[in-house]
């Protein structure tokens, strides 16, 4: 399984959507950190480089990162269908479930790679503002950007890592959903579009208060709402496992 996983990661990094996504994640912080309209948009004056990652994360998680995640997850399977390599692999005496499981693991790791690149890009963009102790907040911890006093570099980094890790988990159900659609449609475009459409439709369902606590879209900002982690995190994991198991079951008897 390890060898299959290494192959899958190698293939992931060659996908065009992944390469474009990682480039965007790296460049976005630079644009935000030096954007002249930053004050007008957020009423924020950057006082430390530790505040740049929050800007990237807040803006990225609004649409860009979910979209890039769905696109990559869909392309992981869709590209193999379009190249014809999926058939070649499935002809071998190897279980279908092993192949798809490797792909699911890879697409679940991808959000963390994307967010790690965004974090690195943000910290690089934050260098001119300094990365020492400062009075204020990272925007991802207590007191948001105003903070609750002086914040040390270790404290700031811990807040950022926790928030980015949570954001990665928030993107999991979307990865799994895009993979499920990729198994159903065997097409990158259809799967990515269906996953994003489902997300947008789910957002509209907040009009039904009774089901709102159980919608995955209610927890897309979990990384800045630590109080909701108790219910949100298990729910996001349940969605991820549910979509993944469904994808595995369908793939087992899917005509290729």
């Amino acid at each position: 399984m390890l060898r299959v996983l290494i192959w899958e990661f190698g293939k992931l990094m060659r996908l065009r959507s992944v390469q474009i996504g990682l480039l965007a994640a790296l460049v976005l912080p630079l644009l935000w950190a030096f954007a002249p309209g930053l004050r007008a948009q957020y009423g924020l004056e950057l006082v430390s480089g530790w505040q740049v990652p929050a800007l990237s994360l807040l803006t990225g998680m609004d649409f860009l990162f979910p979209f890039l995640t769905a696109m990559a997850a869909a392309e992981v399977l869709g590209s193999e269908v379009s190249m014809g390599t999926l058939k070649s692999v499935l002809l071998r005496p190897s279980p279908r479930s092993r192949l798809l499981l490797a792909k699911i693991i890879v697409v679940l790791v991808y959000p963390f790679i994307l967010l790690a690149v965004s974090l690195v890009g943000s910290l690089l963009a934050g260098l001119p503002f300094g990365l020492g102790s400062f009075f204020g907040g990272t925007g991802l911890g207590a007191g948001s950007f105003a903070g609750v006093g002086q914040l040390s570099p270790v404290g700031a980094l811990t807040e950022l890592l926790r928030a980015h890790a949570l954001a990665g988990v928030v993107l999991w159900p979307l990865s799994a959903l895009a993979m499920l659609y990729a198994v159903i449609f065997l097409s990158t475009t259809s799967a990515a579009l269906a996953a994003v459409s489902t997300l947008l439709l789910m957002r509209l369902l907040i009009a039904f208060p009774a089901i709102q606590p159980f919608l995955l879209t209610s927890y897309l900002d979990l990384y800045i709402r630590p109080a909701a982690v108790g219910l949100g995190l298990p729910l996001l994991i349940i969605y991820t496992v549910g979509f993944s198991v469904l994808a595995l079951l369908i793939f087992e008897r899917k005509d290729i």
């Binding site: 293939k11 190249m83 390599t85």
Partner: peptide, 9 residues
């Protein structure tokens, strides 16, 4: 099963 056969390019 395909002509030409598909491989990882």
């Amino acid at each position: 099963v395909e002509a030409p056969a598909a491989f990882y390019p």
